[in-house]
Each structure stands twice: as structure tokens, then as C-alpha cells.
Design a protein around this nucleic acid. Sequence first.
DNA 1: CTAATTAATGAGATCGATCTCATTTCACCG
DNA 2: CGGTGAAATGAGATCGATCTCATTAATTAG
Lengths: 345, 345
Amino acid sequence: MADLLSVAKLAGVSRATAARAFSTPDLVRDTTREKIFHAAQQLAFRPNKVAQQLRLKATQMIGVMVPSLDNPVFAEQLQAMEVAARACGYSLIVTTSEYDASRENDIVEEMLRQRVDGLVLTVAEADKSAVLTQLHQETTPCLLVYNPPGNSGFPSVGVDNQAASEAATRYLITLGHQQIGMVAGPLLQSDRARQRYEGYCLAMQAAGLAPCPLIEMPRHTQADLKSLAPHLHGDNAISALICTNDLLAISLIGELQRAGLSVPDDLSVMGFDGIALGKYVYPSLCTVEQPRADIGRAAIHTMLNMIRGERPVLTPLPYVLRKGESVGAPTTRKTPSGISSRSIA
Amino acid sequence: MADLLSVAKLAGVSRATAARAFSTPDLVRDTTREKIFHAAQQLAFRPNKVAQQLRLKATQMIGVMVPSLDNPVFAEQLQAMEVAARACGYSLIVTTSEYDASRENDIVEEMLRQRVDGLVLTVAEADKSAVLTQLHQETTPCLLVYNPPGNSGFPSVGVDNQAASEAATRYLITLGHQQIGMVAGPLLQSDRARQRYEGYCLAMQAAGLAPCPLIEMPRHTQADLKSLAPHLHGDNAISALICTNDLLAISLIGELQRAGLSVPDDLSVMGFDGIALGKYVYPSLCTVEQPRADIGRAAIHTMLNMIRGERPVLTPLPYVLRKGESVGAPTTRKTPSGISSRSIA
DNA sequence: CTAATTAATGAGATCGATCTCATTTCACCG
DNA sequence: CGGTGAAATGAGATCGATCTCATTAATTAG
């Protein structure tokens, strides 16, 4: 591959001049600039970014880590980040942690070796994260996405999960629901899910209602009706359910329908995140929409500011309560119909 | 940031020895190696990959371009690629073309400047792609994913779209369907969609049935019932529909249900791709599953072979016909019930 | 105990750009 | 036409690693 020096030789100038022709064309006489460009053309010269990066001590690359791209929330956010970064001349190195702390460590270390100009991370648990405490020693700017600001000590872009969850719960209460449950993935692994549960509890208490214990599903993004069945019967049978993410909600609705139950007649189901597909399924998903694209864009622009050395200004992004067919007013009967309960058992 | 030279100084050795301590520890005496490691520790030395890349003329980075991460097919494939690449010590630069040819050009050029060791691309139209014809001049290895091998001249990883589509169509025919339609995004933009349509036509003809003209939806991943309505009535009313991707299928099913139609009783709907969510919705999606994770892994491993200078060996990956509740045998009546047709109009 | 071998280390070039600073070229003016 | 200041160019150092080749230190053999 032709380098700048060979271009310079062919054009009959020094490499300094050749370099200037590209970086600061104004400093080069028109005629020589032409000669240089012509030579570059002939040799199919393509500037070597690696050499630039070494010399300039800046890579114009941002390291991104998300838990998994199998969840559309992260994929859609990443899509927006990529477009925003590219528009500003930056590239993304994309990695997935698979919610694994040791992988998180390796990934961040690798990105620091690569000398990314900044890190945009979504970690499993911001407060307990070993990577993050390590990162405080480093000079590379670091920004969290989705993770609540909390006491990790790093700036964070995202919506106020607790407030959003409160709003969602209040919405259900407004519709007349009193027995409202919340469903999450296993072990309440992510700090986001925990905050959402807290918001739910707060809203319930504020309305004088008793929050139910969290219903845990065996997997993050796939509902399991067995874990839910006990809560659908008896005096305390729930009439509405909030899921900590949309995938969980959609698969739960599917399971309920498969069992012969009607959503929202037998049970109202609400999601969280607002993935695009939720609008298209039937019943359409009622959910709290996080502005994923806005979050992605904001993350990139905030990061670019940090790279420039500015202190990040963070305005929490607004969530939107998206109404949908999966939520309705509670029906009078306390328990689902015979058919329904039979098919669950 | 401490560099190797300062580590060498602190350890009292030359940079050559310091470098060897890391790259080829066996060539360094135990005691000096210890001294060097200790010095590195003290200075919090972290090797600079950029410098390595320049010197070694290899970046251990693979450039990946997909149309959009909003489509789970690409996101899930990327997830697998990332894991596979990392396991082999490679990083991914991820970009999205948004099906835009000029963006495709910019992206590839940028990646070549970055001196990625290889390119893994999914382009809109492999045969007409300007980027690809340009790329033939280059020495950087390039591999296509999902794009049919065709006459682009580049190796390609993916399933045989046409055969898969034939199989899907045959499955519907076996169930007794005779009036089968196919739905695609706008303008049959992607070569994949076109191949799938061809497969459908072949299977129909082989069974002595007349293929219907393609039904085009205004958007790639969102169904629109109006475009479909004409085909649901009259003597030639279709009883089954194949969509060129799962998102289209899922949103179509939602729309049909919303209009009071039953899937599969009034209309069987089949998808294509096999995204994870399809298993969880109700009715569960009958689809042709592309082994996205396998494709991702295979793409990375093939690319690594190409980087090593080997000629790629390509075995087309097997698709799986995933049965689901969205497809059933055709009902006797030729047209949907009165209620249904009313609610469509 | 010295010569021959092998192991360990060091000096310096190299990858491909950019930047500083010195030098040359040019234009303009008295 | 020579002098002056600005514009254009060049020489060489630099970024942080690796690699070749020469040199020195340690081992082994005789």
C-alpha cells in the first residue's frame, strides 16, 4: 500500500509538504497541491489511520460495551450511537459482556490498550462493578448508559427508571387496578430492574396499596407461566402486571394467550423499554418507552464533550408512557374464568 | 501513560529486552523478566496496541457492516460474531449502512483507512454494489454475509435463500394450501428478498400452482393491511402468506388479529429468518430459521482463515423449518367470514 | 582454564504519519 | 535592483512498539 512518502517522492516534494496538502491544504501552493493529489491518485494512496493515531495520540474510536445484542433495546441504542458517532468522524468498537463481570474486565482492558478515546458502557450492576472502580484510576473518559447514576461515580445517560416505573404503576392504579404485580428476570440481576421495582413499590404505597413481592422469571427475556400461576387465583389474584422489560412482557402475553387467557380482559400486562416491535404485536404492548435513539445520540454527544475535556452536562431523558391494547380497566370478577384457570394448571 | 521505554529504564534494561519480556518471555532470563514485570506493574504500564498495529502491519480488527441493528436478525448475528472474534483476539468495528449505497462507500473507505485486517459485509444488493466492485482492487480480504454468492465475486456465508424459500412454500403446499402469496418490503430492495421470491415461485410451479405477484409493503419491517386487503377476497383469495422476514410477519399477524381475523384459521402466516421472539408471541411464528449464531461464528472463522491467507472453504449453512401456531391447514371456506372482511374494509 | 557454543542483551532501524523549526522562495516596495 | 516580510517548503524528531543484527554474558566441552 502506497504511503505518504512515496506520494511525496512521485510529486517531487518532501513528505512534510505532502502531509500538509491533506491536513492543511491552505498552506500549500495550488500547483504543488495538484501535483501531490495527482500522485496520490496514481498510487492509490490511502492515509493510514493507525500511523495518525499513534502520532496524534487520539484514535477517534469509542469503545462501547453492552450486555447483549440479542435484546433489541441495546441493539436499537447501538444503532443510534453508530450513526451519531460516524457523523462526527468517530468509529465504534463494539463488545458484548453477556452480563459477565470477568468478561467486562477483559473487554475494558482490551479497549484501553487499543487507546479508545472514550468508553461508553452499560454494566450489569454499576455499584458493584469491579471494572468501574478500576476505571477511576484511568484518564480515559467513561460514560454509563442505562445504568443509574447512583454511587458509581461516573456520569450516566438514561431515563429515571424509578420515576418511570412509578408513573407506569400510577397509570394502572388510575385505571382502577389494585392488585398489581411486577415480573422480572432472574435474581433481579440488573440495577435497572431493581430501580423499577422500587418505583413500583413507591407508587403502590403512595396509593395505599400493598406492593406484591417480585415475581422472578427463570430467564431475562422469556416468560414462564408456572412462576406466575399462583398469583392469578384466590382473593389476592392480580389484575395487572408490570414486566421489567418488553421481551418479557411480549412472551408473557403469548403464554397467557396460549393458556386461553385474554389480555387485557383477564390480565393487563405492561412492558418496559418500548422496543419497536411492541407496537406491532396484538395486543399492542402498553409500555414505558425509553427514547433509545435519543439515549444513543445523547451518549455519543456527551462522550465527545468529555473527550474534549468538558465536564459532562446530563439532563435525564424523558420517558413516554405508551398506551397499548395490552392494558385495560380491571374486570369485575376476581378470578379468571374456569376455562382459563384450568388451562394454566 | 507509561510506555515500554520508561519500563525498560526503571528495570535497567534496554527497550528491546523489555519488549521481549512481553512478547517472547522465554528469551529473557527469569530474573530480568521479573524486574521488568515489576517495573511495569509500578508504572501501570499498558501496551499500546496502536504502536503494535503500526509496526506489525496488522490491527487484529475486523470491520463489520450490516444494514441496520434495528432488525434483530443482524443484531443477533453480530452478537455471535463479537463473541467469536473476541475469543480469537480480534475486535470488531461495527457500522450500519442503513441500506444506503453512498454510506456503504464511506464506511468501507473509512475501514480501509483504519487498516482493518478484514471486512465482513452485508450489503443491500451484492450484484449492483459499487463498493464491492471497488473492493476487488484491494488486498484486504472481504466476506459477505447473507448476501447470496451470485456474481459479486466474493465468498459468502449464509443459507441458500432460494432453497429455503422453496422448502417453506412446499411445506404450505403439503398442508393443502393452494393460494399462497408472498409479502416483501418495498421495491424488493434486498437480493435476499428477491431470491426468496424466486424460491417461492419455483415451488409453486413445481406443484402446478400459479405464483401470485409479490405483495409489497411500504416498509421493511412493518406490515400494512391495506396493501394486503385485495388479496383476501374473491375467488383467488389466498389462504397462506409467506413474509420475507419475521418482523414483517409478526406485525402482519398483529394487524390481522386487530382486524378481527384469526391466524391461522383465516390466514396462515409464515415468516423468514427465525428471530428469537417469534417463538414467544402468540400464535408462535412458523418460520424458516437461519442459524444466525452459526452464521456469525462461521463468518468470523472464515474471515480469520482468509486473513491467514487461506482460500475460504464455504459450506452453505442448513436452514431449519420451524413449525409454529401461525400456520395451519387451509379452512374449507374460500373467503374470510363476513365479520372479518367488514373489519378490514 | 581456555576455546567454542549458546543464551541474553543492546543499538538502531522501522512502521507511516505529524509537527516544530529552519530555510528557501516569492512578491512587493522603495 | 537589493531588501524585507510573508508564504512555501524541507530536515529531522517524534509517537510506542518490534525486529534484525551485533555484541556481551553465561555455559559447556576439551
